[in-house]
Write a protein that binds this DNA or RNA. Structure first.
Lengths: 168, 168
DNA sequence: ACTGCTAGGTTAACGCTGTTAACCACTTCA
DNA sequence: TGAAGTGGTTAACAGCGTTAACCTAGCAGT
């Protein structure tokens, strides 16, 4: 089963984000990675947003999986491990995290139900209390967002903040 | 005391953000607001980042002031009022909030000490515990960021989340 | 009063961006 | 055999930040 061209485009975009950051995600750069000219991408996607949506979908899935795996590994006290796993994923994929969480999701272009599916583990961690789950999600997202934006001073003990927020 | 041209540029950029959002903040649009051509802006600023930094500085000051005023108004139980005042400022100035908090601060272009000054009220609210202050800041920032990005469903009770996070 | 500097504007242009139009070759199928 | 569809091409456009070159009004110094 060969890779479809759309998957190749998605992978090229993902790798470009990993290697060169958000600003490097241009149609011409993606095309160059596939050894092709930029306009030919439009034979496979309608516009750049559709490629961004592919990245957002993968980022949502991967980060939710990281959460789920950590919860499975620490079934009795999952909060801190799950939070740290989420943080770890974000720090390792900063451009992907920002492109899916620092701007509106391209919902119309995302697979149906994906967003809800990825919210499940967070709901579960908050014992299905929607308010609690939103606060915990916001705290994790806020800590990551501020860390990625370099808003904590270099001497800040960010680990201690995570432990205080999600620890025992 | 007439307004200096740099202040006029800063104000034009601010108003443009208020009225048309982040993507509308272009050199040509700022210049048009002053009835002038884009290249002439470079007689007053080195580049676009310098204008963004002017906006960031004003946003930091205004949002910190909103915090401080709320704390002064509710000296006995300031946490929730202060948090809601911060949220209110962000919701009323979404483009300015995002341009200063969703990307790295342009520290080299910001007035010396401004960032620290604006962190003081948050520190005070957290009883000068740096870890607590970072968590509370992150929670507020996360809630705002997710709300501005439209990540909460329309039926979500965001007020309840704020009350849960900062309430009594 | 004349000279020359400076402040602050102008237009033209460059390289980048996303995107469209027009064209072309190869494969598939009736 | 011919038609349609697939997936590539180059040229081009408007908008972006930015630079270069030029011009003009006002002020300072002799």
């Amino acid at each position: 089963m060969r890779k479809t061209r759309i998957q190749e485009i998605s992978d090229a975009a993902w790798d470009l984000l990993s290697e060169e950051g958000v600003e490097a995600l241009t149609m011409r750069a993606i095309a160059a990675r596939l050894g092709v000219s930029a306009p030919s991408l439009y034979k496979h996607v309608a516009n750049r947003d559709e490629i961004v949506a592919l990245v957002q979908a993968r980022a949502l899935i991967e980060s939710a999986d990281a959460l789920r795996r950590a919860m499975k590994r620490h079934p009795d006290s999952p909060h801190l491990p799950a939070a740290l796993a989420y943080r770890r994923w974000a720090i390792r994929n900063p451009a992907q995290y920002r492109i899916t969480n620092d701007q509106p999701l391209l919902r119309d272009l995302l697979p149906e139900g994906l967003e809800d599916d990825c919210a499940v583990p967070v709901m579960e961690l908050a014992d299905w209390d929607p308010d609690r789950s939103r606060v915990q999600w916001a705290t994790a997202h806020g800590l990551i967002s501020l860390e990625l934006a370099g808003r904590f001073p270099s001497y800040a003990d960010v680990d201690a903040a995570w432990t205080l927020a999600f620890g025992p």
